[in-house]
């Protein structure tokens, strides 16, 4: 005879499994749907999807999203290099001198910066960069992306540096290394894989950011532009504009671009998984 306690146990497991499946169902559905729709567009448009210009609302051809791809690459590169430099220096400072009041302040500042909504960053950069420069530019977009990624990268790098066991630092000091060379020659080489993961994750974050670019990059997609001071476009911006538009052809382009973004993200995700796995071995 089953007691109430045993029945309750089974009931509980059933409900938990059901709700968990419900929690991960969206992501699975999302990946499948985006892939199916995206691949259909890739096949239809061919390689011109990566080299052509976006279509006009009434055109028959799908065209391509070259300006957005180049814009995303350009802004990601600029902002990634600035972000990583600043974040690594800040992380070294706070891990080397954790009790110092400046380090405590930097921690708190990073936390508050991280909680500022991305659209607010876009408005701030609009006032501080776009208006003085008299126009939208890839540079303004990169600044906005840097502000968003900086606290994120900083938090990650300081976590990585703090996780290096203290014995390595002690060993470095015992052979009379200075603090500087201990960091450069011992700490960072040991944490290099963690740092690589951090760089990749920051890159994924920058690449997919939409709201920060709304009022900074300029949504300029009539021609491919490599100049950082000229208006640019990004893949997320193109998706955002086109999915809100009423035209079917633009919806199709948006699906293709979404699939491309998802593909890039998943590639980064697997690269991260691969590196992390090696760390464990």
């Amino acid at each position: 005879m089953y007691s109430w306690r045993k029945i309750r146990e089974k009931l509980f497991i059933c409900i938990i499994i059901l709700l968990s499946l419900l929690a991960i169902a969206p992501i699975i559905h999302l990946v499948i749907v985006v892939s199916i729709n995206g691949i259909a567009i890739f096949v239809k448009a061919g390689t011109s999807f990566f080299t052509g210009l976006p279509p006009t609302p009434l055109s028959e051809e799908i065209g391509g999203i070259a300006p957005s791809i180049i814009g995303t690459l350009l802004m990601t590169m600029i902002s990634l290099s600035i972000t990583i430099t600043l974040a690594v220096f800040a992380a070294i400072l706070t891990t080397e001198f954790p009790k110092n009041s400046i380090s405590v302040a930097i921690d708190a500042i990073a936390k508050s910066l991280a909680s500022i909504p991305t659209i607010a960053v876009s408005m701030i950069v609009y006032t501080l960069v776009v208006v003085p420069m008299k126009g939208f530019s890839a540079l303004a977009g990169s600044v906005a992306l840097t502000i968003i990624a900086l606290p994120y990268a900083y938090t990650y790098f300081s976590m990585v540096l703090r996780s290096v066991p203290a014995i390595y630092r002690e060993a470095a000091f015992s052979v009379a290394m200075s603090r500087w060379s201990a960091v450069i020659r011992v700490l960072i080489p040991i944490a290099r894989k963690g740092i690589a993961v951090g760089v990749l994750m920051t890159m994924a974050r920058i690449m997919g950011e939409t709201a920060a670019l709304l009022f900074t990059a300029g949504r300029f997609r009539n021609k491919v532009s490599f100049s950082p001071t000229e208006p640019a476009d990004a893949i997320p911006l193109l998706i955002f504009d086109y999915i809100l538009s009423p035209y079917d052809i633009w919806h199709q382009v948006a699906w293709g671009a979404t699939a491309l973004l998802l593909l890039a993200y998943i590639a980064i995700f697997f690269a991260v998984k691969l590196i992390v796995k090696e760390v464990k071995l």
Binding site: I27, R205, T210, P236, A254, L261, Y265
Partner: peptide, 17 residues
């Protein structure tokens, strides 16, 4: 891993879906 994959996903992809 699926939870991690969801976590870093650009929000624009969620928006489209």
């Amino acid at each position: 891993s699926i939870v991690e994959l969801m976590g870093g996903m650009p929000t624009i992809i969620y928006a489209v879906w």
